[in-house]
Simulated assay, not measured.
Amino acid sequence: MNKKSILFVCLGNICRSPSAEAVMKALVKEKGLQSQYYIDSAGITGFHAGEPADSRMKQHALRRNYHLTSSSRPVDPKIDFEEFDYIIGMDDQNIRDLNNLAKTDQDRSKISKMTDYCTRFVHDSVPDPYYGGASGFELVLDLLEDACEGLINKLENE
């Protein structure tokens, strides 16, 4: 069986996308589906390449038992559009940037926005918490939990 491969993308790959990766991995494991998924995250920019997730994001995630263990990396359009079935951006700018990186209509068909999968929250994006306070990090996790549940339900019912 082929694994469903998902790449979560935000600007720098230190807050939102590594959190989405951790939340999705935890939910997939909780449902006993880990053998069916390959999950990763990346950033539009390589500014934080090789760095761990933001320490504030890690602290908030840990309170919910999510472990942010990935290192930041930039999107590699030559590899990522080939390797991943779903490339999910956190906000409209991420979506525009991903569409600019895409080379073909098939590449573009893999792109969607994280909040498209929300079922409880009505937000048009996952806001970047980097310059805000604690409530921003908590909102990110709330949105990601909702969206990851919705994404799993969508993928499991296809």
Results as ranks from 00 to 15, higher is better:
residue 2 N to W: 04
residue 2 N to H: 09
residue 4 K to Q: 13
residue 5 S to Q: 10
residue 7 L to Q: 12
residue 7 L to C: 11
residue 8 F to W: 07
residue 10 C to T: 11
residue 11 L to I: 11
residue 12 G to T: 05
residue 13 N to W: 08
residue 18 P to I: 02
residue 18 P to Y: 01
residue 20 A to R: 00
residue 20 A to L: 04
residue 22 A to W: 06
residue 24 M to K: 03
residue 26 A to R: 08
residue 29 K to A: 11
residue 31 K to I: 01
residue 31 K to S: 04
residue 31 K to N: 02
residue 33 L to S: 07
residue 34 Q to P: 08
residue 35 S to Q: 13
residue 35 S to K: 11
residue 37 Y to Q: 02
residue 37 Y to A: 00
residue 39 I to T: 12
residue 39 I to K: 01
residue 41 S to H: 12
residue 41 S to C: 13
residue 42 A to C: 07
residue 44 I to P: 05
residue 47 F to D: 06
residue 48 H to V: 03
residue 50 G to C: 05
residue 53 A to G: 15
residue 53 A to I: 06
residue 53 A to P: 03
residue 54 D to Y: 00
residue 55 S to W: 02
residue 55 S to M: 05
residue 56 R to D: 04
residue 56 R to Y: 06
residue 57 M to A: 12
residue 57 M to T: 14
residue 57 M to F: 03
residue 62 L to K: 11
residue 63 R to M: 08
residue 68 L to K: 13
residue 69 T to H: 03
residue 71 S to N: 12
residue 72 S to A: 15
residue 73 R to A: 07
residue 75 V to N: 02
residue 75 V to H: 13
residue 76 D to Q: 14
residue 78 K to S: 09
residue 78 K to I: 15
residue 80 D to H: 14
residue 80 D to A: 08
residue 81 F to R: 07
residue 83 E to K: 14
residue 86 Y to N: 14
residue 88 I to Q: 13
residue 89 G to V: 11
residue 90 M to A: 14
residue 92 D to H: 08
residue 97 D to P: 07
residue 98 L to Y: 14
residue 98 L to V: 01
residue 99 N to V: 10
residue 99 N to K: 15
residue 101 L to W: 10
residue 102 A to S: 02
residue 102 A to T: 15
residue 103 K to R: 07
residue 104 T to P: 03
residue 107 D to H: 15
residue 109 S to N: 14
residue 111 I to F: 10
residue 111 I to T: 08
residue 112 S to Y: 11
residue 112 S to N: 10
residue 114 M to G: 08
residue 115 T to R: 00
residue 116 D to M: 10
residue 117 Y to F: 13
residue 121 F to T: 02
residue 122 V to Y: 07
residue 122 V to D: 11
residue 125 S to R: 11
residue 125 S to C: 15
residue 127 P to T: 05
residue 127 P to K: 02
residue 129 P to N: 00
residue 133 G to P: 05
residue 134 A to Q: 12
residue 135 S to K: 10
residue 135 S to W: 15
residue 136 G to S: 12
residue 137 F to Q: 04
residue 137 F to A: 02
residue 137 F to L: 10
residue 139 L to D: 08
residue 140 V to M: 12
residue 140 V to T: 15
residue 141 L to V: 15
residue 141 L to D: 06
residue 141 L to Y: 03
residue 142 D to P: 15
residue 143 L to M: 05
residue 145 E to G: 07
residue 145 E to S: 06
residue 147 A to W: 04
residue 147 A to Y: 01
residue 147 A to I: 08
residue 149 E to Q: 10
residue 150 G to Y: 03
residue 150 G to A: 08
residue 151 L to R: 00
residue 153 N to Q: 04
residue 154 K to Q: 11
residue 154 K to V: 10
residue 155 L to F: 04
residue 157 N to A: 09
